[in-house]
Simulated assay, not measured.
Amino acid sequence: MVTQVFNKRDLDKVQNEIVSVINPTKKVNDLRRQVEFADTFQNRINLADALYEIGDYKSGIGEYEIALKGNYTSDPGVVKKLLEGYYQTNEYQKVIFCAEHISKRSDFKGSRSQFLYGLALEEEGKSEEAEKNLKPIDQRYSNYEERYTLAKFFLEKGKDADAKEILSEIVLESQHMSKPNRNRYRGVVNDVKKLLTSLS
């Protein structure tokens, strides 16, 4: 029988995680102090990530921007996070700017970043380009919320058949979900079913 030794460091880590859940601003304050102590790229990113976790996108964006210092080719992962933040704060031209810096990467196609790029293009009135960047998110057994948004996009464009196809696929896939996924995606699957019913 393997016994796991639960040392003080593990206990401290668990206690810190519990405190972070109960008081998320404590984690942000601790990370701010770390940046003051050592202003490194990683400390800035950790702080920005924590700010996003509590929904403070504006402050998080500021930290990511400082970490990159205008060098948008240095860290594609950070650019993706910036792109997400810009979308959440309705800064669509900046979403497009970030997307164009990472669009040649192989992991861009079919990613959430490309999807947000498509939504930003739509907001800027570039519907054809938007559709081209939204469609790759339609991958079976994944991206349920994004695919639901894509179906609504098709409906707005009068492409009812395309919308129904996506909605029907999601309903079909939902019948084969594992229990955790069924719980996780219950809300979006219910929305999909309602929308599909309203179309028939």
Rank of each mutant, 00 (worst) to 15 (best):
T3N: 11
K8S: 11
D10G: 07
L11V: 12
V14S: 06
V14L: 14
I18G: 10
I22R: 14
P24Q: 10
V28T: 13
N29R: 15
F37Q: 14
N43E: 07
N46V: 09
L47H: 00
A48E: 00
Y52F: 14
G55M: 09
Y57F: 15
Y64F: 14
Y64E: 00
I66S: 05
I66F: 08
N71E: 08
N71K: 13
G77F: 05
V78M: 02
K80I: 07
L82G: 00
L83T: 02
E84S: 10
E91W: 03
E91S: 11
Y92D: 05
K94Q: 06
I96K: 01
I96A: 01
D107I: 06
D107P: 08
R112T: 05
S113L: 01
L116S: 01
Y117F: 15
A120C: 03
L121F: 04
E122A: 14
E122L: 06
A130Y: 00
E131P: 04
E131I: 06
K132H: 08
K132C: 06
K135F: 01
P136G: 03
Y141P: 00
N143L: 07
E146W: 04
E146M: 04
Y148T: 06
Y148A: 05
K152Y: 03
F153R: 02
F154Y: 15
G158F: 13
D160G: 12
A161E: 12
S168Q: 06
H176D: 11
M177S: 06
P180D: 09
N183S: 09
N183L: 15
V188Q: 00
N190P: 07
N190S: 12
D191N: 13
K194D: 08
T197L: 15
L199M: 13
L199Q: 05
